[in-house]
Amino acid sequence: MVPNVNGAPATGRRGVYWQTGACLAVLVCAGWLLRRHWPTVEHGALRLAVADQGWLFVAAVAAVGTWACSALAQQGAVTPRLPGRRLVATQFAASAANHVLPAGLGAGAVNLRFLMRCGLPAGRGASALAVKAAAGVVVRLALIAVLAPACPGLLRTPHVSTAALLALAAAAVMALVLLRVRVWPRCRGAVAAVVTDLRALHTRPVRAAALWGGSLAFTGLHALVLIAVTRAVELPLSPARVALLYLAASGAAALLPTPGGLGSLDAALALALTASGTPAATAASAVLGYRLLTVWLPLLPGLLVLGVLIRRRAL
């Protein structure tokens, strides 16, 4: 049997088509929801315009700090020392690129190119990105485990019928079989490389502290942005509950391949806030303020920094 030399590119193109299709579907649904609830969104925007400026300034400072924390975590994911200023600028540019391409592809491509420019081979750079991503997931799960007992009843499991439970169980079994048969053999080497890199990094306490401390601070500052915005619009929820809702909503939105969570994170945050008893207009104000500070205001400057880095061959 003659192997199909074009199989890999064709498979890659099919993956891109499916991902793009899923992204467009999510964006269409988000647009439909925006149009349907436009009066609430408009009222939320007006409420945000007269919000407490002091709390909005705190949120803006926290948003700026996320790029430094991301740079710290990225430094912790590699053994060689990276140029500090270019590393922070790259994280700022990567955050903008992440909102142009779906499912984090933009940020991953920018960071990988930066690591390669710093002398790391492509394989080691990709492994460093995977280490940073794995640390971020562990930190989020740990924070949810800590905050959930402090906020009892906030994250409620929806009531489902027996037939739905059986269907979910069957789907889970099929997914596990698919992962074991098709996905795991292809990812085994990559997982082994990530585990090896994690062990090597933990032999250097400074790098391990940068990785875990940067990941924790990055997630915590994003939660602080939302907390400060909720304070600015006088949303009646405690900081711990807002942080837990943010972690749950951002985790759910990460399953949908939209650029920077556009549409998916907005809907998940709004749903989480309103499900906790927040008025719809206030929830809309909080989501708009959070996205304004973390996405829309930094987007154009981030793309300009990306262009400068490319022009100077830093990427």
Rank of each mutant, 00 (worst) to 15 (best):
residue 33 L to W: 10
residue 8 A to S: 06
residue 9 P to F: 03
residue 33 L to K: 00
residue 12 G to R: 08
residue 19 Q to E: 12
residue 32 W to F: 09
residue 14 R to N: 08
residue 9 P to E: 02
residue 15 G to A: 14
residue 34 L to D: 02
residue 26 V to K: 00
residue 17 Y to M: 12
residue 7 G to V: 10
residue 10 A to K: 04
residue 30 A to I: 07
residue 24 L to E: 07
residue 27 L to C: 05
residue 27 L to K: 01
residue 22 A to H: 04
residue 36 R to Q: 13
residue 28 V to F: 04
residue 21 G to F: 11
residue 13 R to Q: 08
residue 29 C to R: 00
residue 33 L to R: 03
residue 18 W to C: 04
residue 16 V to G: 03
residue 34 L to V: 09
residue 29 C to I: 14
residue 18 W to I: 14
residue 11 T to S: 10
residue 9 P to W: 02
residue 19 Q to A: 13
residue 21 G to S: 09
residue 32 W to Y: 09
residue 28 V to G: 00
residue 12 G to Q: 08
residue 6 N to E: 12
residue 34 L to S: 07
residue 34 L to I: 09
residue 13 R to I: 14
residue 31 G to A: 13
residue 16 V to P: 04
residue 19 Q to K: 01
residue 7 G to L: 15
residue 14 R to A: 13
residue 20 T to K: 00
residue 28 V to D: 03
residue 22 A to M: 14
residue 9 P to A: 02
residue 11 T to M: 13
residue 24 L to A: 15
residue 36 R to A: 12
residue 10 A to C: 04
residue 21 G to L: 14
residue 10 A to H: 06
residue 21 G to Y: 10
residue 24 L to R: 00
residue 11 T to L: 15
residue 36 R to T: 09
residue 11 T to H: 03
residue 28 V to A: 11
residue 18 W to Q: 05
residue 12 G to I: 13
residue 22 A to S: 09
residue 30 A to L: 07
residue 8 A to N: 05
residue 23 C to S: 14
residue 17 Y to D: 10
residue 25 A to P: 05
residue 36 R to Y: 07
residue 23 C to E: 08
residue 18 W to M: 10
residue 6 N to C: 05
residue 16 V to Y: 08
residue 15 G to N: 12
residue 10 A to W: 05
residue 23 C to G: 12
residue 20 T to Q: 04
residue 12 G to N: 06
residue 33 L to C: 02
residue 28 V to L: 10
residue 29 C to F: 15
residue 22 A to K: 05
residue 29 C to M: 13
residue 8 A to C: 03
residue 19 Q to C: 13
residue 6 N to I: 05
residue 8 A to L: 15
residue 23 C to V: 11
residue 19 Q to D: 03
residue 13 R to S: 07
residue 13 R to C: 07
residue 29 C to L: 15
residue 24 L to W: 04
residue 30 A to Q: 04
residue 26 V to C: 11
residue 36 R to V: 06
residue 25 A to H: 02
residue 22 A to T: 14
residue 23 C to H: 04
residue 10 A to L: 12
residue 34 L to C: 06
residue 20 T to N: 04
residue 14 R to H: 09
residue 30 A to M: 06
residue 29 C to Q: 02
residue 33 L to V: 08
residue 24 L to I: 15
residue 16 V to A: 12
residue 16 V to I: 14
residue 24 L to Q: 02
residue 23 C to P: 04
residue 26 V to H: 00
residue 9 P to M: 03
residue 15 G to S: 11
residue 12 G to P: 02
residue 23 C to T: 15
residue 16 V to T: 08
residue 23 C to Q: 06
residue 19 Q to S: 12
residue 28 V to N: 00
residue 30 A to T: 06
residue 29 C to T: 07
residue 9 P to Y: 01
residue 16 V to N: 02
residue 36 R to K: 07
residue 20 T to P: 03
residue 22 A to Y: 11
residue 25 A to F: 13
residue 30 A to V: 09
residue 8 A to Q: 08
residue 29 C to P: 00
residue 28 V to K: 00
residue 20 T to M: 13
residue 22 A to I: 15
residue 19 Q to H: 01
residue 30 A to D: 06
residue 18 W to R: 05
residue 8 A to Y: 06
residue 27 L to S: 03
residue 8 A to R: 10
residue 22 A to V: 15
residue 20 T to D: 03
